[in-house]
């Protein structure tokens, strides 16, 4: 009984790592542009489809090469999306047209997948062998999911703290005007942030394809859970996503186990609403001393 719970917790952490990575990909774009990319979930699923079409059953060498190809292709796609979203829009009505354009890109990607692939879930063979925890076989991709989260956390940290472009992207999120006054190439950095977010979700989608439902309508589930993870951790805080993601994953898994699989998303929604009502800045979000 106890070991059963433990297994569920470990699977939850693994699934939650996916949410955490998506949340980190939100953060980097949001920091640089103040945009939240609603299409991120479908970009993630594209990674899964890439794994199915390019590397299902392939050898390790081919698989690794395709991982890179898929990651770069999705990075290019997301930065193109970013380019369109950032095109200066003349609107007398509102400035938040990005909200509409990212939602419509999400719908477009989902629709293209639905038209070309049909409403089916594709299963992808795992490249990583399954391993045993407490006597239960655990798919290797769960390990990859956790690995990917840690990898991207470390990679982002190194990038944002130690490379010139990374520092500049951090600067954009800390003081946009001062960054412009300093002559930082704002638009190029913003596109870079989009590209990195695409690389993140594309590669993770590819890696975890064996344990997710690779289907045209699955993207929304991931964009939402990724968002919940980002909110729980505190928007903008990557270290927060390391807690927020696994937390959401574990809640979802425990809900599935105790209440029923259909209630996973309900549980995430409840987590989201309660965080927003009681602690909108998230666990690691800073309470700003600014006045209202």
């Amino acid at each position: 009984m106890l070991s059963e719970i433990l297994i569920i917790v470990i699977r939850g952490i693994a699934i939650g790592s996916i949410f955490a990575t998506i949340a980190m990909s939100f953060n980097i774009v949001h920091g640089a542009t103040n945009i939240f990319n609603f299409a991120q979930g479908n970009m993630f699923i594209l990674g899964g489809f890439a794994a199915y079409f390019l590397a299902n059953g392939a050898g390790i060498g081919m698989w690794a090469m395709m991982l890179i190809v898929a990651g770069l292709a999705i990075a290019a796609l997301v930065s193109f999306q970013g380019y369109i979203t950032l095109l200066p829009l003349r609107s007398s009505v509102e400035q938040d047209s990005w909200l509409i354009s990212t939602v419509s890109v999400s719908v477009i990607v989902g629709a293209i997948l639905m038209i070309t692939q049909g409403p089916f879930a594709y299963s992808v063979q795992s490249i990583a062998p399954s391993f045993r925890i407490f006597g239960t076989r655990t798919p290797g991709a769960y390990g990859l999911a956790i690995f990917a989260m840690i990898f991207w956390y470390v990679a982002l940290r190194l990038f944002l703290k130690h490379t010139y472009s990374g520092l500049a992207i951090s600067a954009l999120s800390q003081d946009f005007d001062a960054a412009r006054a300093a002559g930082l190439p704002v638009r190029r950095l913003q596109l870079l942030a989009f590209a990195i977010s695409g690389l993140m979700v594309g590669s993770v989608g590819f890696l975890v394809a064996p344990v997710i439902s690779v289907s045209p309508d699955a993207g929304l589930k991931y964009v939402l859970n990724g968002f919940v993870a980002a909110v729980v951790g505190g928007i903008g805080s990557n270290i927060g996503t390391l807690i927020g993601g696994p937390l959401v994953g574990v809640v979802a898994m425990l809900t599935a186990y105790k209440v029923g699989g259909a209630y996973q998303d309900v549980a995430s929604l409840l987590v989201l609403v309660s965080i927003l009502v009681f602690r909108p800045q998230g666990i690691f979000g800073r309470v700003t001393a600014r006045r209202v």
Binding site: S170, A171, Q174, D175, A178, A179, R180, A181, G183, P185
Partner: peptide, 24 residues
């Protein structure tokens, strides 16, 4: 021109209120 372009062509504004990037 956009501020970042102006800055790159050799004109630099230091904003008021000693604004630096606090988390760097």
């Amino acid at each position: 021109m956009a501020p970042e372009v102006v800055a790159r062509s050799g004109l630099r504004l230091v904003l008021d209120g000693h604004r630096v990037f606090p988390e760097l």
